[in-house]
Nucleic acid binder design. Structure first.
Length: 283
DNA sequence: ATGGCTGTTATCCG
DNA sequence: CCGGATAACAGCCA
């Protein structure tokens, strides 16, 4: 569920809270999320370490660590479908679906993940295969073009490949294609130069706009959320909720296209729900 | 209430 | 090698 923009918003929230905090103890309640490091390895690597900068790479959270002894290291997290990370007072109750709990010198960091598709480990190899940050300099039209070239896969599926544009997930892939006016089923390699150019611009626009939206919301990172689609972290403010207003195609099957009124259609690509407007996004 | 849906991705198989 | 299907898991919804 969390895609790059959600992770970015979370990282901005966590970074100043974590910096300088020392890890006192580690409790792994679901060992599978610590792969490939493993529960023991995680505890060994973390106890005594101090959080320094916290950044993002694609959908991964990167917690840079300082160690009194060695050269430091990096704790890498991924929220999977249902993951949350937040700080709570050490006196609070640990939630039912906590998978890893870090007791800090002040307070506690909880990684909660009911479906346990998430990860928290010390292996940075997962970052190696990622494509460039879509909002960074490395993500050029030429790069995108090269990654799509010769590929017969549907462009929507290609966009979900993290080696193409790190951080794009199912919801934003759909929104990006709507903005670019490209049918999701089009074979990636069949896009013409002007399609690729619009796609490139749409990737940046959709992701940047999602981050900007999330950055000003009053989010409750520990809350249950209200399945509002974008910021699955619950919101404590009184902003309008519901995905309908924020998304043009995601979860809008049967509803009128905001541009032309045509009913949005829903298809399945690579097992993922995909919405699109058959008129604005012709084959 | 049973079955189908869900924002991810590693792995398996043809 | 490519691409589609499946599995990992729990909750929510119709």
């Amino acid at each position: 569920m969390p895609e790059g923009p959600e992770v970015e918003v979370l990282v901005r929230h966590l970074a100043p809270l974590l910096r300088g905090r020392r890890i006192v103890s580690v409790e792994v309640r679901a060992p599978r999320v610590t792969r490939p490091t493993g529960a023991d390895g995680l505890a060994r690597g973390l106890v005594g370490a101090v959080f320094d900068h916290t950044t993002r790479r694609g959908k991964h959270l990167c917690f840079e660590l300082l160690r009194p002894d060695a050269a430091g290291g990096m704790l890498v997290g991924h929220l999977g479908m249902t993951g949350r990370m937040y700080l709570q007072p050490a006196t609070a109750g640990v939630p039912r679906h906590a998978v890893v709990v870090l007791e800090l010198d002040a307070g506690r960091m909880v990684f909660e993940d009911s479906r346990r598709f998430g990860r928290l480990h010390l292996d940075r190899a997962v970052l190696e295969g990622l494509g460039p940050e879509p909002l960074g300099d490395g993500f050029t039209v030429e790069f995108l073009s090269k990654r799509l070239r010769g590929c017969r896969q549907a462009v929507k599926v290609r966009l979900l490949d993290q080696s193409v544009a790190a951080g794009v997930g199912n919801i934003y892939a759909g929104e990006i294609l709507f903005l670019a006016r490209i049918a999701p089923e089009r074979p990636a390699g069949a896009l013409r130069p002007d399609d690729v150019s619009r796609l490139h611009a749409a990737v940046r626009e959709v992701l940047a706009s999602a981050i900007a939206t999330g950055a000003v919301l009053d989010l409750d990172f520990a809350g249950d959320g209200d399945r509002d689609g974008l910021f699955y972290f619950g919101r404590s403010g009184r902003e309008p909720s519901g995905s309908g207003e924020r998304f043009r195609v995601y979860d809008r099957a049967g509803l009128p296209c905001t541009e032309c009124g045509t009913a949005i259609r829903r298809i399945v690509l690579a097992g993922r729900a995909t919405g699109f407007c058959p008129r604005c996004q012709p084959d």
